[in-house]
């Protein structure tokens, strides 16, 4: 609670949290908030020449190439972004934490193998590996979520690994080892609570990366597949037309940038608040 209060005191972070709240509300209540059905193609949604309509009183954000209401599609697109953001980032955080803690606490051959594996993963550009995986596995919402998780756990694993190493060398762990506390008990009741702030910070920052990766994959055509709207595939569908229908890129684009920026801002502020060693150095 005190952390939340501290976060709200920063103006930019308060705005970021407010925007995240809007997106969450839009995602949950999409059927009630959206003015139209996101997949319905309106006859009056296209001009006489068959071109999409710019924003006006009836279609607030304009219409897309098939005459569908852009505002409704953007509202429903919030669902896709958040589902992927939460599910796939959640999986990535769990894998990353498991790998990092195992490598840092258990060490031994298993630890080295795991850390070499993260080194190996770092050698690939995340986007290209995700593209290859998604193309092979044939994209759908859940495959995309899984693919993103598979390329995104690496960063968290490395951070948790170095945190675990430095925690394990602290005196209180050594004392507990000496008085015979079992390893799992040290891990669960002493190490993990100390790791929680780091996990929280990187989980927040990770949502930003995940949202960006989903949007990019969908833009390239290997992400969430139409007709299910996602902010990335709205732009994918209209890319050939974007020079004459700028709004089709602008509105979903702003939605993506704002969401990713918000999670970055909140994550960065959380790091300041939760990590006492950073205080005064900024």
């Amino acid at each position: 609670m005190t952390v939340l209060k501290a976060l709200l005191k920063r103006k930019t972070v308060a705005i970021a949290l407010f925007y995240i709240l809007i997106v969450v509300v839009a995602a949950i209540f999409a059927p009630w908030l959206a003015p139209y059905d996101p997949t319905e193609q309106f006859f009056e949604g296209l001009s006489l020449e068959g071109a999409p309509l710019p924003p006006d009183g009836e279609f607030w954000l304009g219409t897309d190439l098939l005459g569908r209401d852009l505002l409704s599609r953007v509202i429903y697109g919030a669902r896709t972004s958040l589902i992927i953001g939460i599910v796939s980032n959640g999986i990535a955080v769990v894998i990353g934490t498991l790998v990092g803690v195992t490598a840092g606490f258990v060490r031994g051959w298993l630890g080295s193998v795991l850390m070499r594996l993260t080194d190996l993963m770092m050698a690939f550009p995340a986007l290209l590996l995700a593209i290859a995986l998604a193309a092979i596995l044939q994209p759908s919402l859940w495959i995309v979520a899984m693919v993103i998780a598979m390329v995104n756990w690496v960063q968290i694993a490395r951070v948790i690994y170095s945190e675990t190493i430095s925690l394990s060398s602290k005196d209180f762990v050594a004392v507990e080892r000496t008085i015979g506390v079992s390893a799992p008990r040290i891990l669960f009741s002493h190490l993990l609570p100390h790791l929680l702030p780091t996990i929280l910070v990187w989980a927040t920052l990770g949502i930003s990366t995940t949202v960006l990766l989903e949007a990019t994959l969908s833009f390239l055509g290997v992400g969430v597949q139409p007709p299910m709207p996602s902010w990335g595939n709205i732009i994918f569908e209209s890319q050939t037309y974007f020079i004459s229908a700028m709004w089709l890129v602008l509105f979903p684009g702003i939605a993506i940038i704002a969401l990713s920026l918000s999670f970055n801002l909140v994550g960065d502020a959380l790091r300041d608040e939760l990590d006492p060693t950073l205080k005064g150095r900024r």
Binding site: S208, T216, G232, I235, I257, S260, L261
Partner: peptide, 9 residues
Amino acid sequence: SSPHFIAAM
């Protein structure tokens, strides 16, 4: 925080 495709477009 900006995806490259949006910035590029």
